[in-house]
Design a protein around this nucleic acid. Structure first.
Lengths: 167, 167
DNA sequence: ATAAACTTTCAGTAATTATTGAAAGTTTAA
DNA sequence: TTAAACTTTCAATAATTACTGAAAGTTTAT
């Protein structure tokens, strides 16, 4: 497999993986492209390489910056803006895990809390609803805590956690 | 908040959460409904409660059974089929984690492997592609191993893992 | 103040994904 | 074997989500 083919394969795989967990194809592809690029790229270059429109590129770059995965670089004397992504996979994982916790897990935990604290009215149905949503709530909270702790150990956390966990 | 309101809130929250990680709304809602129901439900009852069509219900129940989260019950003397979901949250988490690993993480790991084993041709670009996809591959593999190990300790794994990890 | 070089916005459109509903299929009972 | 009671399938359609491209906006230089 040649460089170009391998690169395209990587980018498109990463792209379709994106949809699978809530970020869109273009966004994931832009990130993938920057991830294997040896230097920051301009909007023009990104559009060209991925064959997507200017608008699409602009919007998705913004989202990636909102996530904190992509940074804008201004080169002195140049008008164009250049973009690069976090290159360290562990740091990348850290950022993504944190954002997903904040955007997805936390809101669900809050709603589960609202649900399982309804008034116990003595019926079986209510009891079951309370019991099950409480169990889900506790699971979500534990998982979230765990994720955050694992992820906040900046250096080499995955390996460290594995060691601790299975020794 | 009343029972009905709380239940609906739970179901619709769970439903919209579904889309976010690759299973569709109806599928997630059916699972949620069964999760808080005190007895197995027939297709008729599910359709009625969620206001979805027969076809939709049938297809999504099948998917849920493929995932191994929902079971079909035949009651002697009755023609109708009844459905229930796994009620234990930890077991549920175990099943979901395992399936997601199999369906999503494993295929990506395989493709990353293909990409980072291309021939080193001496150029910077190729070097970077290999380096970065290898790093991603290793991360994915470690995370996957971790997930599977955590998840295969049937009894009370989350709590146990937390203890081990942070003491 | 004007213009060139760029980026952002957003209404319209295209692509994708989910849902319906009716026809076809299956099982059981008589 | 026929019919009743159910489930499954799938083509058509609806709903959702992503993408385009051109106009509006911004910044910098002169």
């Amino acid at each position: 497999m040649e460089y170009k083919e391998a690169k395209d394969k990587f980018i498109s795989t990463w792209g379709s993986l994106g949809t699978l967990w809530g970020i869109n194809k273009a966004m994931a592809q832009i990130q993938a492209l920057l991830f294997v690029s040896i230097k920051p790229l301009s909007m023009e270059e990104i559009m060209e390489e991925l064959k997507i429109s200017r608008g699409n590129t602009s919007m998705n770059l913004r989202q990636l910056m909102d996530w904190g995965i992509v940074t804008k670089h201004l080169i002195p004397g140049e008008r164009k803006e250049y973009f690069s992504t976090e290159k360290d996979v562990q740091e990348l994982a850290r950022i993504i895990a944190k954002e997903r916790s904040r955007r997805e897990i936390q809101p669900v935990i809050k709603i589960l809390e609202e649900v399982y604290t309804i008034d116990e009215d003595g019926t079986e149905n209510t009891k079951e609803l309370i019991k099950q949503t409480k169990a889900l709530h506790d699971l979500a909270e534990t998982a979230d805590t765990m994720l955050n702790k694992v992820v906040n150990q900046k250096q080499n956390w995955l390996t460290k956690s594995l060691l601790k966990m299975f020794t």
